[in-house]
Amino acid sequence: MTIHTKQYRNNHYVDSSHYLSEEKRMSVQSTWNMKKSLAVILVAAPLVLAGCGGGGGGSTSTPSPSPATSAVAAQSYTMSDLVVPDGFDYSSVEQFDLDIDISSISTARSFVTVYSRFSARDDSTLKPDYSSKVIAGSLNNGVFASNFTAPVNHDSLLVEIWFYDGQPPLQQVVSSSDSQIVW
């Protein structure tokens, strides 16, 4: 082996070991950085998710329940634990009887519709929510009689009578607590 070759090997070996050492240091540093990043993500994720709570507008956030509260909430109940007052009605609809007689006002062709939801317009007339129609039918000589069911979650119902001659409808708001509606 020549001196030149020996020198080359010594230099190459030193350079190779230097590069291997540098590569190992970079690998350790990279692993450390990944561990730090993962730790930050794991710590921050619950905080971010807690801040993304449900809909609705207010600026306050609901704190997560403490372990003591969670233990109480985790208690299981059975149907035998349920207490219901006598006479409680589980039905979400109510039965109504509708009797209309406007023969003293008009016997012209007319049509009645009852709505469970409506709103007030600026001109004091009422605007029905057409998707909430619970019954509709023709009046015969100004008279209409029928029964129907409607949701009990509304305080009142809107009864509208339309005439075919183009005049504005007759409107009447009735209490949904009255099962007998008479006009």
Rank of each mutant, 00 (worst) to 15 (best):
R25Y: 11
P65Q: 06
G54A: 15
V84L: 02
M26L: 09
P65G: 08
T60G: 10
K24M: 09
Q7Y: 14
V84K: 01
Y8T: 09
L47I: 11
S17D: 14
D89Y: 02
E22V: 14
G58Q: 10
P63H: 00
L38K: 09
M34H: 07
L42A: 12
F88T: 00
N33C: 09
G57N: 05
N33T: 05
E23L: 08
N11Q: 12
S37A: 15
M34L: 12
S37D: 13
G58D: 09
D89I: 02
A71M: 11
A50T: 07
G55D: 02
S59N: 07
C52N: 06
V72R: 06
V40S: 14
V14T: 12
Y77L: 07
H18W: 07
G57F: 06
S17P: 00
N11H: 15
S59W: 07
G56D: 02
A74W: 00
L38N: 02
H18T: 07
P46H: 03
Y90T: 01
A50N: 12
L38T: 05
Y19V: 10
V48W: 08
K24V: 04
A45I: 04
S70R: 10
G54C: 05
G53Y: 04
S64I: 06
M26G: 04
R9G: 06
S37G: 13
W32T: 11
A50G: 12
V40M: 08
G87V: 01
F88R: 00
D86W: 01
G51Q: 04
A71G: 08
V48N: 04
S16M: 09
K36T: 08
M79I: 06
N33Y: 05
V84S: 00
L47Q: 09
A71Y: 04
T31F: 13
A68W: 00
L42T: 08
E23G: 15
S70Y: 08
T60C: 13
S27W: 12
L49F: 10
G87A: 00
S64Y: 05
Y8H: 15
K35F: 10
G51K: 08
K36E: 04
T62W: 05
D15N: 11
G55L: 08
S70N: 11
R9P: 02
A71H: 04
S80I: 01
L82F: 00
